[in-house]
Design a protein around this nucleic acid. Sequence first.
DNA 1: GCATGACATGTTATCGATACCATAATTTGG
DNA 2: CCAAATTATGGTATCGATAACATGTCATGC
Lengths: 336, 336
Amino acid sequence: MSSRPRGPAASVKITDVAAAAGVAPMTVSRVLNTPDRVSEATALKVREAIERLGYVPNLIAGGLSSRRSRMIAAIVPTIASPMFSAPVQTFTDVLGQAGYHVMLGLSGYKPDGEDALIRAVLTRRPDGLLLTGASHSPAVRRLLKDAGVPVVEIWDAAEHPTDMLVGFDHAELGVAVADFFAAGGHTRFMIFAAGDPRAAARREGFVRRVAQHGGTLVAERTLPAPSGIIDGRLALRAVAPLLTERTALFGSSDNVAFGAMEEARALGIAVPQRLAICGFGDFELSRGCEPPITTVSVDGAEMGRVAAENLLARMNGRAAPRRVLVPSRIIERAST
Amino acid sequence: MSSRPRGPAASVKITDVAAAAGVAPMTVSRVLNTPDRVSEATALKVREAIERLGYVPNLIAGGLSSRRSRMIAAIVPTIASPMFSAPVQTFTDVLGQAGYHVMLGLSGYKPDGEDALIRAVLTRRPDGLLLTGASHSPAVRRLLKDAGVPVVEIWDAAEHPTDMLVGFDHAELGVAVADFFAAGGHTRFMIFAAGDPRAAARREGFVRRVAQHGGTLVAERTLPAPSGIIDGRLALRAVAPLLTERTALFGSSDNVAFGAMEEARALGIAVPQRLAICGFGDFELSRGCEPPITTVSVDGAEMGRVAAENLLARMNGRAAPRRVLVPSRIIERAST
DNA sequence: GCATGACATGTTATCGATACCATAATTTGG
DNA sequence: CCAAATTATGGTATCGATAACATGTCATGC
């Protein structure tokens, strides 16, 4: 008799099932984990016993023994934006179908949020990790290396990822948007960028290319991260006096772009005649609003899917690409 | 010497730390879990050893031994909508600060998505569960009862929750919106509702009250769940011919309401003169668009926070309210 | 000065499953 | 018809931590 406190109804364990089915516990384990190694007749008996006793396997115990938790940690700044909720959604779906569960970690936009979170998450011995961005503190990099866990980084395109990466180059994307505007005959430019590292990279590329085109950077505003519709409205209101001539605006997200457009409407600034707007993210909003907003589409759901598949490959001992770049493309709509 | 395969660098465990610090493993455990029961001098030695060896505790082992996983499962249909991402976000934050991690389960809108997910999640022996809605299959209810895990249900107001509940009455809310429109002198009504049970309850309340007011229900459309901006646009386009006189529309989410408004704009239907619109959810969108949209505000973030706190209370052996109703209120804006 | 108790630490026995090796049952081939 | 190969099952020893109890140490009070 155990001296431990037990739950209200001492729960059914693998030995109970084994006894009920007249087999060894190990056989029950096989029925659940490697069914092809058990005869059909035995498997039937065992499954019947499982059903009858209402056995729910304990994956904590299994994980300790097998040293595989079948859990994956996903760390993103927030799920309040489609930018991150989309990849997390598909990531969770794909891994769920493979029998893995996802622990969600929300790091916020504070620079040190990630460190503590990764440390905490590693105490659960995840079989894999999804991280946002590829710039991490040296402490984190060492921690990850020591843990020996497969890691996928998304939403970034560092040359030397910690382990694997599925993302794209934000600076290049900024360049592409500048080129797009220039091709439309624009000479005056503005950018509203959120304060996070990736939005900053997009801005850097955009600003650099504008200069190369000999364009004028009329205004450049940094918004709090995560930035939204209201931030876009406020920013546009602040720069409205500068909108005396035809100008092109790049917003760091579709929400920001939409906010700018709505504020422009309220102020009587014509879009796209006086103000051309390009957003980022291809949220449903930019497609559904009136006029629809030109945007840069990056398939976040796809990113999550590929990240999950690469992680699965590695966890199953197969090889997986070190660096996958997902395409981004400008979707031209009525706002430009 | 163990016959098990070991990781690349056999990882540091509690016995290693204990040896390095010259104490028993149990003392190391105490330093980490119940620091007040350890003398300051010993704690210092132990912490130094932990730091020096880079010890990362194994909560899988700890969980097996203590029968407390310190994990909570959160099951929502999707995180693509602010309706669910907001509560999940605060829920995760609050529990994270208390040392719990959240497993994310996305059940989708298929009726049987939840069953399998809950069953799978229980194999991890979570210390608590967050569920969306309060109508579950009998199998699930029994499973939860047997597991003896604290459960909070959100986004609903069933009379007899499975365990605890933090939500509100959707039908009542539909009634309130009908009253609000009626008070504004409306006699013609339309509703666009998503196909999920909660949107259906809002619709039922709205339709019932409209009838009580002697109003005309001009159109009633069911949208696919989860429904978005585009669904709202399409629905409005379909019913546009009916908008010959002043009409009031209740959308099942702010996204749907916004889509309807944008389509109305495209079709030259004046808002709010010919079409008054009320949404649901108080997303940033309804506040940030032009004109801003009247909506029913329900604080999803607050719901997540309270759910987390009640769960924490119960897990710590304290009492927690069985049924918490969060307020909802109509925020009147320019669309009505 | 010694019993009483509070506090700090150590010892032992699990928690519930799976890896690995051993053995039994079955099939295959010459 | 039997040895060798294959397949199915069982036994044992952990996985890494913590609960419960035992022990040791010191302060307090009468």
